[in-house]
Design a binder for these strands. Structure first.
Lengths: 208, 208
DNA sequence: GTCGCCTATATTGTTGACAATATTGTTGGT
DNA sequence: ACCAACAATATTGTCAACAATATAGGCGAC
């Protein structure tokens, strides 16, 4: 169970990659074939994924991919906003000179990606920035929660990245976060992060 | 598994009631006896409780009650602070007249409990206040996270309630939260809640 | 006497078969 | 043609026995 973490990892990666449709039924026997694992291992994985909010299970009926609608995605983002705000504040309080340089470099690359119209690269940099800030903050509990919430959001995240002109708006918000962290201004960093997520929520509502 | 929710509920309640010591080993066979359940059901419960952060499992070795130290308790409280802040803000935006009256009544009871020196009643009212605010906010995702974090904190929560003079300090903070929510002032409600949790963190650090 | 190895024991991990349950399809009646 | 009851199937839930692994205690060598 804990031994065979491979099944869970692969399965989770597949869900996060969007390889399963929302509300798709997950029959244990089929999953056994797909991941060439025993039903035992599959059940353990399903239970773990249920706890992570990625899978929904109904007793005696079966499991399915949880469908997270816009309303729930907004709620998730609201929580994410305040928790990432906490992280940004902590990052501003603890950032080192070397880390500050890293952030500045990410910011420069972002501007370059926007100028080149490379949305793929921008999305990649977006992830890198958020994870860099998390690392600087060094707040395990907050990072865990963000990871969990992010997992539930992947589908909408993907939809967001395809909204045209989105990156040219968010690049300034990202820069504001970077500037505040480098300036070691906790209040400003939290405010910038919250403003950024608020804008994400707005865009999210617009994708309906 | 999902059928026999009784085992999980009882077991979880026992942990939350502090009936198991931190780092206490949880041998599956013993738990089978205690809850007169099959090993199968016990394993499912253990896995669920691991996901909730109440139990820690090491492959091929076994499960034990997770020991949450002061440092981690502080981190948990920091996250709790911002998420409860969000909840308080939402509550202020959505509170109805009847709900406002309920809050005021809780506040009055709190003052009375402090005056009477009844720490038990005060603790009870504390829970009631926070859960009333959660209900007013109607933010499922935030409430879920708070519930999970609270579960991990029970031990320290108990220690806190026994700090002498703690209630006479916190009663004013609680009143500030109530006032802000009733005034429908989101900013003030969030600030009051965060100040309250900050004070809890301070007290937490002092219990070492 | 102490260190390392080895065996014994306790405990968890895994499997396959079986039971319980829900869903689907079919048949007969009106 | 439609509905209800029933049978057949698919799927999950549960169990008890077995395998694998880690821990603890004892034995011998130095």
């Amino acid at each position: 169970m804990a031994t065979d973490t491979r099944v869970l990892d692969d399965f989770k990666a597949a869900i996060l990659a969007g390889r399963y449709a929302p509300r798709q039924r997950l029959v244990e026997a089929e999953l056994c074939e797909d991941y060439s694992a025993s039903r035992f291992a599959i059940r353990a994985a399903l239970q773990a994924l249920e706890a992570e909010g990625l899978v929904e299970r109904i007793p005696n009926v079966g499991a399915r991919i949880r469908d997270i609608g816009i309303d729930e995605a907004v709620e998730i983002s609201e929580v994410r906003g305040v928790v990432e705000g906490l992280i940004a504040r902590r990052a501003a309080e603890r950032v080192s000179a070397a880390q500050a340089a890293d952030l500045e470099e990410i910011g420069a690359s972002m501007h370059a990606a926007v100028a080149a119209g490379d949305t793929g690269a921008y999305g990649e940099l977006n992830s890198r920035l958020h994870s860099a800030v998390r690392e600087i903050a060094g707040h395990d509990k907050a990072s865990d929660i963000i990871a969990r919430l992010h997992g539930q959001m992947v589908r909408h995240q993907y939809a967001l990245s395809r909204v045209p002109g989105r990156s040219s708006v968010s690049v300034h918000q990202h820069q504001a976060i970077i500037d505040a962290v480098i300036a070691r201004d906790g209040d400003a960093a939290e405010a910038a992060m919250r403003a950024h997520i608020a804008s994400v929520i707005e865009a999210l509502r617009a994708t309906v």
